[in-house]
Design a protein around this nucleic acid. Structure first.
Length: 111
DNA sequence: CCAGTGACGGCTA
DNA sequence: TTAGCCGCCACTG
């Protein structure tokens, strides 16, 4: 689908942008899809650089436990949860409810 | 060129 | 069971 040699984090942006509304995914899933499985840190780290790129729904990306670990990096801590709930994703105590149901795997859904 | 950083993930004690 | 540690790889200074 893509044969560009863009930077790793640039690739992360594309995948994150493809996340459907009301769905969430994990750093590891994205990393695995990009071929950097085991290096989920790179994904999260890349999203930090995505901050200026508000077009990227980074709030749909959570950790393996469905926790909004990166909420602190948003405009304000509650922004991440707020946006998720706004899209229909129930969040409580910084944790996505029914995370397994909301989980969106790029390797499977995007294929 | 070298070293540090980082929104994770899995293993061991 | 819970808590803590190490390991991964890419980017910036």
């Amino acid at each position: 689908m893509k044969a560009e040699k863009e930077s790793f984090f640039q690739n992360v942006y594309e995948v994150v942008r493809l996340i459907p509304e009301g769905r969430v995914t994990s750093y590891g899933a994205i990393a695995s899809y990009l071929g950097a499985k085991g290096s989920a840190r790179m994904v999260g780290w890349a999203l930090i650089s995505s901050q200026p790129f508000t077009a990227i729904p980074a709030h749909r990306v959570v950790n393996r436990n469905g926790l909004l670990t990166g909420k602190q990096h948003f405009e304000y801590a509650a922004a991440m949860q707020e946006r998720l709930e706004q899209e229909g994703v129930q969040v409580e105590n910084d944790q996505v409810l029914e995370f397994e149901k909301r989980f969106w795997d790029p390797a499977k859904e995007l294929l």
